[in-house]
């Protein structure tokens, strides 16, 4: 049990990092990585939502959709759950932790369209994970996302002051530097410590 959890965690954080090897969640990754602070806030929010979404969607899938034979509605049901969840988290934060709420600002509602969140839920179903495995995969996948976005934000703060061709301004230079970070993450590929 412990080894499974450890191998899932290591896989989600380093080996099969959501951004650098599965390309899930690239939009917020490129959109919110201007500053390390916002990147960290976004990362924390995504970890939270991914963990919670994995748990809730697993329960809905196992106890509602599968018994009723409605698996073909999985995509629809999951995206609605995620949208509602993000809305709930937003209202909860607004009431109880207003400081974090204002720090996250617009990025909070945008988590709904983060494909890492829907991706992790769909992958949980595809891999037939148990409840605990799903939650672990959700949280560690979020941690992997957070690691990637914070690392990349620090890289990006440096590229702002460097001298690159004019036509690379904006997204292209980000993508090129992201490709180099992805190259670094490739060092983890093929690692399998716990079988």
């Amino acid at each position: 049990m412990l080894t499974t959890i450890l191998s899932i965690s290591l896989g989600a954080i380093l080996i099969n990092n959501f951004i650098f090897s599965q390309f899930l969640g690239c939009c917020p990754f490129l959109g919110c990585s201007n500053k390390t602070d916002t990147a960290t806030g976004m990362g924390v929010a995504v970890v939270f939502v991914m963990g919670l979404a994995s748990a809730i969607c697993w329960v809905i899938d196992q106890y509602v959709l599968i018994p009723l034979g409605l698996q073909f509605l999985e995509t629809l049901a999951f995206i609605l759950v995620i949208a509602a969840l993000v809305q709930l988290v937003e209202m909860f934060l607004k009431k109880s932790v207003p400081s974090l709420y204002s720090a996250l600002g617009i990025y909070l509602p945008l988590i709904t369209t983060n494909c890492a969140v829907l991706g992790v839920v769909l992958l949980n179903v595809q891999n037939n994970y148990s409840f605990i495995e799903s939650v672990v995969y959700g949280i560690t996948g979020g941690l992997g996302f957070m690691l990637a976005i914070v690392l990349f934000a620090t890289v990006r703060e440096r590229t702002e002051f460097s001298d690159y061709p004019e036509c690379f301004e904006g997204f292209p230079i980000c993508l090129v530097s992201a490709s180099l970070v992805a190259l670094a993450f490739m060092g983890f590929s093929g690692m399998s410590i716990f079988g």
Binding site: F20, C167, G170, P172, A178
Partner: peptide, 22 residues
């Protein structure tokens, strides 16, 4: 063919596009 190539190719393509549009 690896993730590196995906990021790099898209970056180069957008750069070419920006150059042409400008």
């Amino acid at each position: 063919n690896l993730p590196f190539g995906g990021f790099l190719t898209l970056g180069l393509l957008i750069a070419v596009m920006q150059y042409a549009l400008k």
